[in-house]
Write a protein that binds this DNA or RNA. Structure first.
Length: 395
DNA sequence: AAGCTAGACAACCGCGTTCCG
DNA sequence: TCGGAACGCGGTTGTCTAGCT
């Protein structure tokens, strides 16, 4: 059934807010406080929709908002949270004081998404493009000039080659200067994605809980804890929360085939709890994209027996263990700075069956890990002139 | 100088959820 | 318990501006 408009659109002003209207809103809210937005236009003497007034206040006029550019730390936080929970901008914004969901969303859409793409990482799934191509099972066709795979564009193919080259070197020790912070991001983000995908088919954050603890509440609790204790890995917590809160649900519904065969199930072949129908339609997270193939991302699964456990103590153990196994890029840098290691590498990714990798620090002085990745990618270019000179990339 | 394009960001829209009588 | 109003959220569109041709 069609809804009536929230206000009379014919008599309502739209578009840019002039300073006088801002002043009216500010004057009204300073006197009466924010709220009851449908009444605000009339009481404040504005010909605006109440919804529009609320948006203007929450996204622009609120005194606690930052209006300067995003810091590298904020950038890093957004990427990590997006990898973990997808485009739930309101939740992400709550972790960034002074930022609104609109700010974060715009920043993601205009800057970060492109940055990740340029690094060879699909910003939707947080998987390397190369892995997506492998998922399609047709990467060999790429070597033909002018070939196109589905909707993949030239940049994606180029990036896929770059990251494919990296992928081919893993998990065996990479050549000097090749396994890098870029690789680390790919690994960490894709591990998050793949684990969530494998554990919770059909989406990373289905609200298919049957108790009073909603996923969002769990996320927020985790984020609050993270804010207080930055040494605890947020993504690991999120994963652990997912394991604990949803493994039991899934365990009741998943067929034994899922575990026995160790293959990723398509969402259509799996029945989630009935309440899953209420899951957010806007959660376009890493876990949603389904590979049509049995794919080696399962190599990065946590121990499956542990997932099936319904013992609260065991689940707590999972949480505790997962908090200590992923090293964030920023932590890599810290560790590099603080360690006595002489080869400028750190051992990480001790994640269940996942082998350890070495990640030499970038030689640049990049201030954010994204910049560091781009710097490293630039450093890599001369090492693979053949790929870069391939006319396929520039058709 | 004019036109075009891409980037940045403000604002809008539709829909799901929550609140409240 | 139900229904309508209000609110919140994510996706999309519109507008402005800087840079390029």
């Amino acid at each position: 059934m069609e809804r009536p408009p929230c206000c009379d659109k014919l008599n309502v002003k739209r578009g840019i807010w002039p300073a006088e209207e801002d002043a009216k809103i500010l004057a009204y809210i300073s006197k009466h406080g924010a709220g009851n937005w449908t009444a605000v236009p009339k009481k404040a003497g504005l010909r605006r929709c109440g919804k529009s007034c609320r948006l203007r206040w929450t996204n622009y006029l609120r005194p606690d908002l930052k209006h300067d550019s995003f810091t590298p730390q904020e950038e890093e936080m957004i990427i990590r949270l997006h990898a973990a929970i997808g485009s739930r901008w309101a939740i992400i914004a709550q972790q960034l004081p002074g930022r609104t969901d609109n700010d974060v969303k715009n920043y993601w859409n205009t800057k970060l998404r492109k940055k990740l793409s340029d690094m060879g990482i699909d910003p939707v799934t947080h998987k390397p493009f190369s892995q997506i191509l492998v998922d399609y099972g047709n990467i060999g066709g790429l070597y033909k000039c002018g070939n196109r795979i589905g909707s993949l564009n030239r940049d994606m193919i180029k990036n896929a080659f770059m990251s494919k080259s990296q992928h081919l070197y893993q998990p065996s020790p990479p050549p000097p200067g090749f396994s890098n912070i870029n690789s680390h991001l790919m690994m960490s983000t894709t591990m998050v994605s793949s684990q969530a995908e494998s554990i919770i088919p059909g989406g990373l954050l289905n609200n298919n809980n049957n108790n009073n603890n909603t996923s969002d509440n769990m996320i927020m609790n985790s984020l609050s804890h993270y804010s207080m204790n930055s040494s605890v890995d947020l993504l690991a917590q999120l994963q652990a929360i997912k394991l604990v809160t949803e493994a039991s649900n899934c365990a009741n519904n998943m067929s034994a085939q899922f575990y026995n065969e160790g293959s990723l199930l398509s969402s259509s072949s799996l029945s989630l709890p009935s309440s899953s129908s209420s899951s957010s339609s806007t959660c376009s997270t890493a876990g949603q994209e389904k590979s049509p193939l049995n794919f080696s991302w399962q190599d990065f699964l946590l121990d499956e027996d542990a997932l099936l456990s319904t013992d609260p103590q065991e689940q707590n153990n999972i949480v505790e263990q997962s908090q200590n196994v992923i090293l964030l890029p920023s932590q890599i840098n810290n560790e590099n700075n603080n360690t006595t290691q002489t080869n400028n590498t750190v051992q990480r990714m001790d994640y269940g069956a996942v082998p350890s990798y070495e990640f030499p620090a970038t030689s640049s002085g990049a201030s954010s890990f994204v910049e560091a990745m781009i710097d490293r990618e630039n450093e890599m270019f001369p090492e693979f002139p053949d790929l870069l000179e391939d006319p396929c990339f520039y058709n």
